[in-house]
């Protein structure tokens, strides 16, 4: 019975968006209502990663209302404008920007109305937060966003904003040169594993996961993405494989296609790094896909560190680990005989 522990590291990067000059566009519509509540209309489908929450936060921040006042209507082709696909880690960056622009336009219409009402000569002299618009430097003078929106509407002002954002990239030339993606997210993970050199079984003990997301709009959401990414990476590293025979799938069920369960997921230490991206909403980039990239290579490097076994075929099933152990240490063959 021999268990060996090791530590491995992996650095990765990930270009956000469709890339390669393809129009990567999102449009959003934002409306401020009489009671100070806000509707965001976006085509962005929330697949569980939390885009609707992030977009609500952005609209609330930009307009100056509590996030509970925002309703996000999403992903209905009769009711929402095209936001592009929920993929490529792009919704926080691309649709986040679109919602920010749309919210700014709607909010500025309200501020312009309030500036006239309060005798302020520029909207720069107003500040909106927590449901109130106040005069900068003279906070006694304020009006609630609900009251202002209601008065504006009765005077024929419509507080609607449209925002469209297009991510910058260029098509690669014949030598593969250009700006294929913008921005890039970065991640570094360090995995600690225990390898049973008799059975080939690998247990992942801990993963430290540091990710540069530009700016976290929702820290809980970012941590959730990192933890989910690590769990998925464990599957990629150690167990997941669609087995084919003559093009047919031999294991189309979860009794034969193994994915990590709660018992396989290690202790995870997420670290959020914020190096703001000037073109991102509040500096945000994204984390959905980047979160899963470093896990598997860090685990494979940890196996190498623990045992000297360098696997080149994945996933690192016990059979493959034993084979690699024998290749790394021919003496093992005699031990096992």
């Amino acid at each position: 019975m021999a268990k060996k522990r090791g530590v491995g590291i992996a650095c990765t990067f990930y270009g956000i968006g469709y890339g390669n000059g393809f129009p990567d566009v999102s449009t959003a519509l934002v409306e401020i209502h009489d009671d100070g509540s806000v509707t965001v209309r976006t085509g962005a489908a929330d697949c569980g990663q939390g885009s609707s929450t992030v977009l609500a936060q952005i609209a609330a921040q930009e307009i100056g209302v509590p996030v509970e006042k925002v309703t996000v209507v999403s992903a209905d082709t009769d009711a929402t404008p095209d936001a592009g696909t929920t993929a490529a880690t792009r919704q926080t960056y691309v649709s986040g920007n679109a919602v920010r622009l749309a919210s700014r336009k709607a909010a500025d219409k309200l501020l312009e109305f309030v500036a006239r009402e309060l005798g302020v000569n520029t909207i720069m002299g107003l500040k909106a937060s927590d449901g109130y618009i106040t005069v900068l430097g003279y906070p006694q003078k304020r009006v609630s966003i609900a009251e202002a929106a209601s008065r504006a509407r009765l005077q024929g002002v419509r507080l609607v904003g449209e925002g469209t954002f297009t991510a910058h990239t260029t098509k690669l030339d014949e030598n593969g040169q250009g700006v294929p993606y913008w921005p890039y997210a970065f991640g570094v993970q360090i995995a600690e594993v225990e390898v049973d050199t008799e059975t080939g079984e690998v247990k992942v003990l801990k993963v430290i996961a540091a990710h540069d997301v530009g700016r976290a709009i929702n820290k809980a959401g970012v941590i959730g993405q990192i933890c989910g990414g690590v769990a998925m990476g464990v599957g990629l590293a150690l167990m997941e494989e669609v087995v084919l025979q003559q093009g047919n799938i031999l294991n189309p069920s979860f009794s034969t296609y193994l994915i990590p369960t709660s018992l396989d997921v290690p202790e995870i230490e997420p670290i959020i790094i914020e190096d703001p991206e000037p073109t991102g909403p509040y500096g945000a980039k994204g984390v959905g896909e980047p979160a899963t990239l470093p896990t598997a290579p860090a685990i494979l490097n940890a196996i190498y560190n623990a045992t000297g076994a360098r696997l080149t075929e994945f996933p690192a099933t016990p059979e493959r680990v034993l084979k690699a152990l024998k290749a790394a240490n021919p003496a093992l063959k005699e031990d096992s005989n």
Binding site: C11, D212, D275
Partner: peptide, 8 residues
């Protein structure tokens, strides 16, 4: 801009 790899 926004190359947070060293920090990570």
């Amino acid at each position: 801009s926004s190359v947070g790899l060293e920090a990570c």
